[in-house]
Design a protein around this nucleic acid. Structure first.
Lengths: 353, 353
DNA sequence: TCTGTTATTGCAATCGATTGCAGAGCCGGA
DNA sequence: TCCGGCTCTGCAATCGATTGCAATAACAGA
C-alpha cells in the first residue's frame, strides 16, 4: 500500500528502498525492537535462540543492512574517525594511513581522510568533521603550537597525534624516536671516520624538525665533535627544493662537511641535487644519510642510507591509542615511541684522509 | 582550570552536549523548523530577513553545527562517497585520490577511503559502505569482469571507475588513453632506431594491463615491426618482483630485445633489476620505458623515461562524473579519457648497430 | 468594510534504530 | 494453589533535522 503511494509521489521511487528493521520484523511477525536486539551482539542474549535465528535468516533473505546514520543518531557514536594529513601525496604518509585505516577498519570504524592542502583553514575542516559526528581525530599535521588542538579540546573530541608531538606533550601520540634515529645516523658516520658532519634540519615549528635537530646536536656532542664541526642549516619545508637550498648553504661553509644528515628523505634528495650542482660525488666527497626510508629511496643513485621508521606500526599505534581514548576518556595520556633502525646503503662510505 | 572542572563532573558529562537546532530556536524564540529553514540556503527565502539574521547570529554565538547524521537520516543523502583503492601505499594512487578528494570536498562531500588489501571480500567492504549510506562509489580496483559492479547495480548505487574500465564499457569511467600512451612509447623507441622491442605486460584481467598490451601490439604493427620482433611477457602483478621475472623471461629469448616497454613504472623498475641480474646496462644494452610517471622515478638510476598520465585530473574527472550521476541518475554513461604524455629521461637511448 | 492574496511561521510526522520500562508467560518451591 | 523470580517480547520515547500542510497576519483591491 505504501510503495505505490510513494512511486506516485516521487521521481526516484523506482529503486526498491533499502529494507529496514521494520521489514525484517514484519516478515518474522515480531516487533522491531526484537529485531534490533537479535541483530546486536551485545543484546542478543535477551532474545530466544530460535527467534534470533529466524530473524537472522529473514535479515539475510531480504538483504537487510543496518543504517549507520540512524544508529549513530540514536547512540551518539558515528563509528567515523577523521584523519588530517598534511599531504596525501607525500610518499611518507600512505604507510601511516594504511596502518591507521586497517586497524580502525578491523574495529568497525571507517576513516575519513582530509588533505589539509592549500584548502581553507584547518579549523574549518575540523568543524566539518565534527558536523559529520566523528568519534575522534588523528592529527598528522599538528605543529608544535597549534590552535587546532585547543579547538578539539573545546569540542571534547578525542584526539591523537601521529608522527608528531605537541610542545607541551599533553596529547597522546605515536611517533618515532627522533633522537635515537639521529643517534643511529651520527654514530654510523662517526664509525666511518667522519669528523665534520652537517645537518639539514627540517622546519623547526614541526616536532620532527625540532626533535631531530636536538637529537643531532646531542649525538654530535656525545661523539666528541666540536660544534663548529657540526654545522646546521634549516630547510623551511620538507621538500626536495628546500633541502637543496639548505645543503647549498652548508656546502658553502668554510670547512665543508664530509657528511650530511638530513632530517628527512625528501631533504636528502635535495642534498643530492645540491651535490650534483656543486660537482661533488656522493658518497665519494660527501656521505648522505636520510630519515624515514620512504619507498624507492633504495632505487635512487646512489641508494640512500637512511633511518627507517616504523610507519605502519606508528599508524596502528595511533589508531589503538585513539580507540582507547574513545572507550574511556579518563585514560592517561600515552606517548608511544617506536624504535627506528638504520638502513645502510650506498650513500655513505668511510672517510679517510 | 578547565581540565579539573571537567574531571570532577565525571568522565564525559561535563562536555556540554553539542547545541542542536532546538537550542538555537529557544534562544531566538522561534520554532525549530524556522531555524532549519533559515540555515538552509535553499529554504532561506521562506523566512523573514531580520529573523534569519537573528537566527544566524544565535547559531554562531552558541557554536551550532548541523548534525549530518540526522540530516542524512531524514533526507536519505549522506554526503559521503566511498573510494575503493587496491592499495593506498602504491605510489601511483595518492595523486588520484587527492584529485578525487579535493573535488568532492569542494562540493561538500566527504570521502571514505578503503584499502582493499588482504582484507575480507570486496563485497563485504562495499556492504559496509552501503551501511554507512554512501551516496556513490569510486572504484579504482575493478577487474575486467567483476562481481562488485553487479553488486552495486543491485544496490542502485551510483558508481564510477577510475584508472580502469569494465569489459563491457557499461560504467562511466575516467582513465588515461592507454593505447595512445603505448604508441608514444613505441614511437619514441622506433625513432631512436630500435627494431626489437619487448613488452612486459601487466595482469590481463586488469583493464590497463589488457589495453596497454593491445596498444603495444597495434603500435608495433603500425611501425612495421614483425610480431616476432615484439615479444610479450605477462607479469602476474603490478609489482617490481613480477616485473623482474617477466623481464628475465624476455631477456632469455633467442633474439634479445634492445628495448623494453613496461606496462607500469613498478614493472619497469623490475626490468632494471632483471637487467642488473643479467649484467646488462641500461640504456647501453637495453632501453626501458615505463608508464605512469610515478613520483621519484626521475631519481632512480638511470632516470626513467616514462609515459606520464594525468592522475590528478583523472581523479577529479571521476569525482565530477560521479556527482553528475548522483544528481541525475538518467545521465548518459561517460568515458573520460585523458591524454598521456611521454617524458624522456635517461633510460632510453639511440640504437645503432 | 469585505475578500483574496501573499508572506511568514508553527505544527507534527518522518527518517531507522536503540533502549528503559512494563507486561506476559512460565517455572519451581512452599 | 499461590507467589517470587526469571526469561522473553512489546511499547513508546528518543536522537536531530526536514518538510508538507495548516494557520496566522498583513495587505491590496474592490
Amino acid at each position: 500500500m505504501k510503495r505505490p503511494m510513494r512511486s506516485v509521489t516521487g521521481p526516484r521511487a523506482a529503486a526498491s528502498p533499502r529494507p529496514t528493521i521494520k521489514d525484517v520484523a514484519a516478515r518474522c511477525g515480531v516487533h522491531p525492537s526484537t529485531v534490533s536486539r537479535a541483530l546486536s551482539p551485545a543484546m542478543k542474549h535477551l532474545v530466544a535462540d530460535d527467534v534470533a535465528a529466524r530473524i537472522q535468516a529473514a535479515a539475510n533473505a531480504i538483504g537487510y543492512r543496518l543504517n549507520m546514520a540512524a544508529k549513530g543518531l540514536r547512540t551518539g557514536r558515528s563509528g567515523l574517525i577523521g584523519v588530517l594529513a598534511p599531504d596525501i601525496a607525500d610518499p611518507g604518509f600512505p604507510p601511516v594511513l594504511s596502518g591507521i585505516a586497517d586497524h580502525l577498519n578491523a574495529e568497525g570504524y571507517a576513516t575519513i581522510v582530509v588533505d589539509v592542502g592549500s584548502k581553507g583553514s584547518e579549523q574549518d575542516l575540523v568543524d566539518r568533521l565534527i558536523a559529520r559526528g566523528v568519534d575522534g581525530l588523528v592529527l598528522a599535521t599538528v605543529t608544535l603550537r597549534d590552535d587546532v588542538v585547543q579547538h578539539c579540546q573545546d569540542a571534547a573530541l578525542p584526539v591523537v597525534l601521529v608522527n608528531r608531538v605537541d610542545a607541551a606533550g599533553l596529547l597522546p601520540s605515536a611517533a618515532s624516536d627522533d633522537a635515537a634515529g639521529m643517534r643511529l645516523a651520527v654514530e654510523h658516520l662517526v664509525g666511518l671516520g667522519h669528523q665534520r658532519i652537517g645537518h639539514v634540519a627540517g622546519p623547526q615549528h614541526i616536532s620532527t624538525g625540532a626533535r631531530r635537530r636536538a637529537g643531532f646536536e646531542a649525538s654530535v656532542r656525545d661523539a666528541g665533535l666540536p660544534a663548529r664541526h657540526a654545522p646546521i642549516e634549516i630547510a623551511d619545508a620538507y621538500t626536495r627544493a628546500a633541502g637543496r637550498e639548505a645543503a647549498l648553504r652548508l656546502l658553502a661553509r668554510r670547512t665543508r662537511p664530509t657528511a650530511i644528515v638530513a632530517a628527512n628523505d625528501l631533504l636528502a634528495l635535495g642534498v643530492y641535487d645540491a651535490l650534483a650542482a656543486r660537482g661533488l660525488a656522493c658518497p665519494g666527497d660527501v656521505s648522505v644519510v636520510g630519515h624515514n626510508d620512504m619507498p624507492f629511496v633504495d632505487l635512487v643513485s646512489p641508494p640512500l642510507t637512511t633511518v627507517r621508521i616504523a610507519q605502519r606500526d606508528m599508524g596502528e599505534a595511533a589508531a589503538r591509542l585513539l580507540l582507547a581514548r574513545i572507550a574511556d576518556r579518563g585514560v592517561v595520556d600515552d606517548h608511544i615511541v617506536l624504535a627506528p633502525q638504520i638502513i645502510i646503503r650506498g650513500s655513505t662510505s668511510a672517510w679517510e684522509r
